[in-house]
Amino acid sequence: MRLLTHNMLSCNIKGVTNGFPLKLEADKWVTKEVDLNADFLRGVFPKIEWPALVAAARALDYGDLPEQADGSMLTSEDFLRRFHHALLELHVEEGALVCPETGRRFPISKGIPNMLLHEDEV
C-alpha cells in the first residue's frame, strides 16, 4: 500500500463522521523506485491532504516532508522529489490503519489494507 492510497482511505463505519485520516501503524515497509513525473505530481497535489501524508511518512521513518505545503512549492525540484518519494515510492507491507474516531483497527497484510466492516458496523 502506497501512501497515496492511505491518503484516499477513510473509515466508513456507520455513524462515524470523522473517519479520516486513518492512523498508520507500520511493521514492515519497502521502498520501490519509480520515475518522477512533475506534471502528475502537480496535478495530484490539490487532492492530497498534506498533514495526513506527513504523518503517514513519519510512521515510515521518513521525515523529509515540510510540515506545511502549498502550490507555490511545486516549482521546487527538491520539494517534488520528496513529495514523489513519500507518495509513490514507500510501500507498507504489514501493519494496520486505525480509525481516529472509534479506534477500530484495519489490518494491512501483504501490502493490502482490509477495510471490510463487521456486520454490526455497516
Binding site: 500500500m1 502506497r2 497515496l4 492510497t5 491518503n7 484516499m8 482511505l9 477513510s10 473509515c11 466508513n12 473517519g19 479520516f20 520501490k32 519509480v34 487532492k47 491532504e49 501490502g111 493490502i112 489494507p113 482490509n114 477495510m115 471490510l116 466492516l117 455497516v122
Partner: peptide
C-alpha cells in the same frame, strides 16, 4: 503496480476520491 483494497464496492474510497 496496482493498489488493491479489500472493501465493499468502493466504500472506504468514496469520500476522498
Amino acid at each position: 503496480h496496482c493498489e488493491v483494497v479489500v472493501t465493499d464496492i468502493a466504500s472506504c474510497l468514496q469520500k476522498r476520491l
